[in-house]
Write a protein that binds this DNA or RNA. Sequence first.
RNA 1: GUUCCCAUCGUCUAGGGGCCUAGGACACCUCCCUUUCACGGAGGAUACAGGGGUUCAAAUCCCCUUGGGAACGCCA
Length: 493
Amino acid sequence: MASQISPHVRVRFAPSPTGYLHVGGARTALYNYLFAKKNKGEFILRIEDTDEARSTEESLRGVVDDLVWLNLLWAEGVNPQTLQDVGPHGPYRQSQRQGIYKEVAEKLLGEGKAYYCFLTDEELEKQREEAKLAGRPPQVNSPYQDWPLQKALEHIQVGNKGVVRFKTKGLAKDYIFTDLVRGEVRFPSDMVGDFVLLRSDGMPVYNFCCVVDDHLMKITHVLRAEEHLPNTLRQMMIYEAMNWEIPQFGHMALILDEDRQKLSKRKGAVACGQLKEEGYLASAILNFIVLLGWSHPEGTEIMTVEDMIQAFDVSRLNPAGAIFDRVKFKWMNAMHLRALPHAEIWKLIQPFLQREKMELPQDPAWQERSVAAFKTSMETLVDAIELYKPLNDKSYVILPEAEETLKWDPTRAVLTTWRDLVAKHPTDYLTEEEFLKIQDEVKNSTGAKGKNLFMPIRVAVIGKPHGTELKILVPLIAKNSLIARAEQALAAI
RNA sequence: GUUCCCAUCGUCUAGGGGCCUAGGACACCUCCCUUUCACGGAGGAUACAGGGGUUCAAAUCCCCUUGGGAACGCCA
């Protein structure tokens, strides 16, 4: 297991642009990124867009934007703005590397390690069903596997189309490798049938381009999700056939949903972009997912990417799957949020407040005070909306939960006195001390105390009897606004 | 079905033969702080899937069982 790390580490994250970046992909990217940084190597972004039907430019744009937002930047791949190739081993989009794959396929074909297969979909389907009935694995048994290349070429010449399959016949042995996270893994060669290398339209298939590219791009370590573990056998066969050096593999456990199933785009919908919309910070996402399958040697939980790089080690990667727990994730986001400077938090909540068309004071001192007052009540950035609403005159409404308080005997007197005292105040805003003083005066002149005192005032300030401390809230609301609200509350009695 | 992978509190995990009466974190419960709700602080409850070995000693090593997951495509 303690395989030495080659002098120059090169790793890659290879998404297929067929959807958005989800947390599973983000974690794979993160681990690769951390591994590269830790070992002073290179992190490469390769685009696996050989599925022409499903790959889209928008999706690529989205995945790239999400990676940039997460600050997982690559040394080679596509330029984040232009999406044009950057780096010495390009192109980095597989759809643009077809000539390369074709060359390799031809070599394999020429050496009899691959063959053209002309089985139709129907024939394939029939074979699969028969195998299933017989209790055999559903592998192809192609009658074309022993055709001489020349004969196949002539067959194509006259208009037939075929796929190129890798020939597994004669490979009867176990393929063994040492997985960076699982230790020794052993596959019997008959676990797979003759698999497709090139489709009938000439487009290569994942397992093939993955090997070709990893080799040509000098990838030293392949850290990927566990779902790829069985693919490793096919890939090892190709490496062997080409006589290429096999990189180190590490298969990381899957991120699971609440039902312990692989997080899927259909069900989980844990897209990074969506989490951003929900008010999560990039730093919190990274921190949370890094802990899904890895742990800091000192047990540290809240950390920066810099901390992760310092401490990262594949030997601490956990082979068991992990459930994505949104509750802990939210807590972690709150911790990251609180650690930020107030001005930064203010900046981050702007898109959310603007979405609600809130009009808040422009004064930076006011903004700073407001963040200081609210940040411990914020778990995600969207929480700012409910927190700031009371400060926005337009959204002052008396809520049903305030009705009872308004019915209390002392309420009218408390509110009247409160309004009058505020009206007499000389400046636009009350300080905390000034508020407490006024509250005290209301108490003395009305005789109301305890909740009979502060609940009515709170209703007159935020429209409901529970919420943020008044001494924090009141200094954030202009005097005229306080008076208007008190009037409104009085009118509702 | 076949092959492969996995298995410690509800969840994320520490642990890698004796330091384990199993540690931490989230969540939960209790108390304190608080003229509300939070924040914060102090406590608490909760786990080695089961069975066999190996060993003076097993959460830790081996085997079996069970349970879970993944893969078996002209998807990646």
